[in-house]
Nucleic acid binder design. Structure first.
Length: 576
DNA sequence: CGTAACATAAACAACT
DNA sequence: AAGTTGTTTATGTTAC
């Protein structure tokens, strides 16, 4: 199983050279919309057929179930399914073409993970750089009215959260399918070519910048507004980023719906025409470049093999199970080395979400050893693990750590010893390691480079604002905290985004809290263990400091079976 | 450029 | 004796 992942480098390439180009973004959006339309047509078509079938079945029943008629129905069904498949193949071709253009970065069934670095992996400065490029290109083309429809997408997206009666027929969880065809992209694109005064961010006298909706009497005033209100600043940059993620979200949604369709057809016994057994991996490279050890460890992972079985994680299909695999202890800092540029902070939700991915793909997790160790310990029922149990957690949860055992085990031990936040507790049978949460939080780096005040304002409001707004605001606020694309969950889209964002925001708050409270007293009393061996520490005067909220907020997803088989089945560690 | 955080390697001791 | 566990030192990388 060769993980199909985009290397960070590729991501950046894509980001810098392709995705963010206004023209290409436009193309992407158009195609996206076209796809959505297709999807809807497909579904409607499907629905009709379904109704017909049912009708016929009913008639048959009344007529007394003659085998002949049943045969007829069967053939009809087959024909129908073939049609469906044809359409789907069309769609797939479309997707493939998108990929070839570098515009589409995901595949149905593709892991969510590779996407995240794409969106998240931009540090503010990079983003600004990119944004500069975009805006310069944008202004250059503004007169020709070229790029467009970002908000269309947004609105489309929003509307998609309404339940679709179409999909309800087959799947109560289906929520987005039929609703996406709000626009006819062709018309829009045409009008853009022809009317220099049309602008993707301007429509119906309103600025369509996400979250803006300022009324602009004419195009001129709109331009003025655009330049004044949406100039290059942190906010706009963040909003742009959010928009990217909205797009990604939609892509994921599409992938998911396709898969759903697949399942539906499968359910209806369409085994004959076996469509796509495996989603074609796009020409992604497994991210072996994440570290040198990884590259030497897995020399086999080469791209260009579209035959590779499906990517290990398909959170798209996995539903909530993927997410619930970890309680939401906020994972700490992220690894910096090698690829840190491309994956800035990732929340615990990320770790949870991508668990399936890391379990199977030999990709180096972007988290620090300390974070992982802590995660392992916190996941345990007793909040304590022996060294060996920690090892086992590593190997169980991360394919990457099934190699080079000597190296990373040493690192684990080293981290355990080095960091004050890990406390060794003598037990009846040996010693276990626990986490001093306060220490851990203390240790967390100041990842928030943006304006913390904004975040604060955010917190009060984020809970109830619309998901998209939440996304925007959150992104505005964080600047360095990613909104990850929620690729999983049965009923995804914005709701998930919202929760994801909430999660992120909490993370953000934690960051700020821990920063701010660095000088404030109040240590968490939660340390119930009795460290036998206390590490010498400088005993800073400000040592007493404890963001209590950190501890309490670290509990987002209670419905997690903590120790589902986590008890150390001896894992095959070094399998090299 | 200095510093902090991190990864990695390795020496070494204590223990099993 | 060999492996495990834990501590410590050293060095290099990266971000800030």
């Amino acid at each position: 199983m060769t993980p199909q992942v985009i290397t960070p480098q590729q991501m950046q390439q894509i980001l810098q050279q392709q995705v963010l180009s206004p023209q290409q973004l436009q193309v992407l959006l158009q195609q996206q919309q076209a796809l959505m339309l297709q999807q809807q047509q497909l579904q409607e078509f499907y629905k009709k057929q379904q109704e017909q079938l049912q009708l016929q079945l009913l008639q048959q029943q009344h007529a007394g179930k003659q085998p002949k008629e049943q045969q007829q129905v069967a053939t009809q069904q087959l024909a129908f399914q073939q049609q469906l498949l044809q359409m789907q193949q069309l769609q797939q071709q479309h997707l493939l073409s998108l990929q070839r253009q570098g515009l589409l970065t995901i595949q149905p069934g593709q892991p969510a993970l590779p996407l995240q670095p794409l969106a998240q992996g931009m540090i503010p400065t990079e983003l600004q750089q990119l944004w500069k490029e975009v805006t310069s290109a944008h202004t250059a083309e503004e007169t020709t009215g070229n790029n467009h429809s970002s908000l269309d997408l947004t609105t489309t997206c929003v509307s998609s959260s309404a339940p679709s009666k179409t999909s309800l027929i087959m799947n109560p969880h289906a929520s987005t399918n039929g609703q996406l065809s709000v626009h006819t992209p062709k018309r829009e694109s045409l009008s853009h070519e022809e009317h220099p005064h049309s602008h993707p961010l301007y429509g119906h006298g309103v600025c369509k910048w996400p979250g803006c909706e300022a009324v602009c009497e004419d195009f001129q005033s709109f331009l003025k507004h655009l330049n004044s209100e949406h100039a290059l600043d942190d906010r706009s940059t963040a909003q742009c980023r959010v928009q990217m993620q909205v797009v990604q979200q939609l892509e994921l949604q599409l992938a998911k719906d396709k898969e759903r369709l697949q399942a539906m057809m499968t359910h209806l016994h369409v085994k004959s025409t076996e469509p796509k057994a495996a989603p074609q991996p796009l020409n992604l490279v497994s991210s072996v470049t994440l570290s040198k050890s990884a590259s030497e460890a897995s020399p086999q992972s080469l791209p260009h093999t579209p035959t590779t079985p499906t990517a290990p994680i398909t959170p798209v299909t996995q539903g909530p199970s993927v997410i619930t695999t970890t309680s939401m202890h906020t994972v700490g800092p992220i690894r910096r080395r090698y690829s840190d540029k491309y994956n800035v902070p990732i929340s615990s939700a990320d770790i949870a979400q991508n668990q399936e991915f890391y379990k199977n793909a030999e990709v180096r997790p972007p988290f620090t050893y300390a974070s992982l160790i802590r995660q392992a310990i916190l996941e345990s029922p007793e909040k304590q693990l022996t060294l060996n149990e920690i090892y086992n957690w590593f190997t169980r949860m991360f394919a990457y750590f099934r190699r080079n055992a000597a190296t990373w085990k040493n690192a684990v031990r080293h981290n355990l010893s080095l960091h004050k936040c890990f406390v060794r507790v003598e037990n009846v049978k040996g010693a276990v390691w626990t986490v001093d949460e306060v220490e851990f939080q203390k240790r967390r780096p100041q990842k928030i480079s943006g304006n913390p005040s904004l975040i604060k304002n955010m917190q009060s409001s984020h809970a109830y604002c619309t998901p998209l707004n939440a996304a925007l605001q959150a992104s505005m606020a964080e600047n360095s905290i990613p909104l990850y694309t929620t690729a999983s969950m049965g009923n995804p889209t914005l709701g998930n985004l919202a929760s994801a964002i909430r999660e992120e925001l909490n993370g953000a708050m934690e960051h700020t809290n821990s920063n701010e409270s660095d000088s404030s007293p109040g240590r968490s009393p939660m340390q119930a263990v009795h460290p036998v061996h206390v590490k010498e520490e400088p005993l800073d005067p400000e040592e007493a400091e404890g963001p209590l909220s950190l501890v309490t907020t670290a509990n987002h997803s209670p419905d997690f079976d903590h120790d589902r088989d986590y008890e150390d089945e001896p894992v095959n560690e070094d399998m090299e």
